[in-house]
Design a protein around this nucleic acid. Structure first.
Lengths: 181, 181
DNA sequence: TTAGTAGTGAACAGATCTGTTCACTTGTTA
DNA sequence: TAACAAGTGAACAGATCTGTTCACTACTAA
């Protein structure tokens, strides 16, 4: 059991999420969490490693959230892929919404080959594959790519413009595209 | 005539675009441009002011680019709003594509009320209004919002995943949505 | 009791950050 | 020639950044 390690990840996530990765210094995370600097560097070799640990956990959390929603919809006989936009909607309405951590990470660490950038790209690929699976028997790579594009578009519109209706709009668009297919 | 001022803006744009705003230090911009620090601070009161000047110019440039493409399409009798995605496509294929400067700016300066964040949000609103105007007689706020969402979605997909086909995909989706309308 | 583990607090290193100041140079214009 | 505007180069201030080190404390398990 390592409560300090998890506490650091939680605090770092909160600050990274709200203020970005470069703008959040190590000292800030330490002050906010009440953990000593020596302890942080015992658990993480560098700031980059801490960022990757935060992204790792967010990735696992987000995937579970989506998978559970899809599974629930399948049990209830709803169109599974559309509930993904309901998950987005709930996220946008929540207090801790400051945009997507992965989009932001790939923006701040833009160098090709950068570990953080690569991880963010992989997260987006995994999300698209989850969408593809949730399409069920009508699985279609192009349709999955279209829905993933709506997914990211909604996040960006919600964040940069503070437009909370973006998820509902994207869902409506998804319905039209599925119907036209 | 102030060649130094413009040279600073051009250099700063290039570095901000490729490496982000926080990751690009003043000294780096000076070394790359060959301008002295005293001169930079004679033209700009602070780094923030330099960032805003860069965004200002990018905004004007991008708007002109879109408006000219729309005007050309109108003259040729094409659907004006769809050429916007052709502009995106050309941008994605160009060498200097590292994502949208405004999305990145609003991510790095996320504090509500921040001048940089506000400017980025306004840029996105202006883009949506341009889309609305280019819809012509079938002008429709909801349709404009939908196309703007496709617009931002394509940019993010192209950048985070390096997927150059995103503009073409978004265009195809736009066509379907316009047809269904 | 003893050994090992986890954590603290504080000082420190060395780099980098934004921004200021000033003596000096260069080019233009009256 | 004299005045002025724009720019240079270099030093400097003060803050902040990541990361290291070390003596010390608290707790737990053999």
């Amino acid at each position: 059991m390592q409560p300090r390690r998890q506490h650091l990840i939680d605090t770092a996530y909160k600050l990274f999420n709200e203020h970005g990765y470069h703008a959040t210094g190590i000292d800030w995370i330490l002050a906010e969490s009440g953990v000593s600097k020596a302890t942080l560097y015992k658990h993480f070799r560098s700031k980059e490693e801490l960022i990757l640990a935060v992204l790792q956990q967010r990735h696992a959390y987000f995937m579970t959230l989506l998978e559970e929603a899809v599974a629930k919809a399948q049990k209830n006989g709803q169109q599974p892929v559309l509930v993904i936009f309901d998950v987005l909607d709930a996220w946008f309405e929540s207090e801790g919404f400051f945009g997507c951590n992965f989009i932001k990470a790939s923006a701040e660490y833009a160098a090709a080959g950068d570990a953080i950038h690569e991880f963010a790209a992989q997260h987006k690929l995994d999300t698209q594959q989850l969408i593809r699976r949730s399409l069920g028997e009508s699985a279609d790579d192009t349709m999955a790519a279209e829905l993933a594009l709506l997914f990211d578009g909604a996040i960006v519109v919600a964040h940069t413009r503070g437009d909370h209706g973006a998820a509902k709009l994207a869902k409506k668009m998804a319905e039209q595209l599925l119907a036209a297919h």
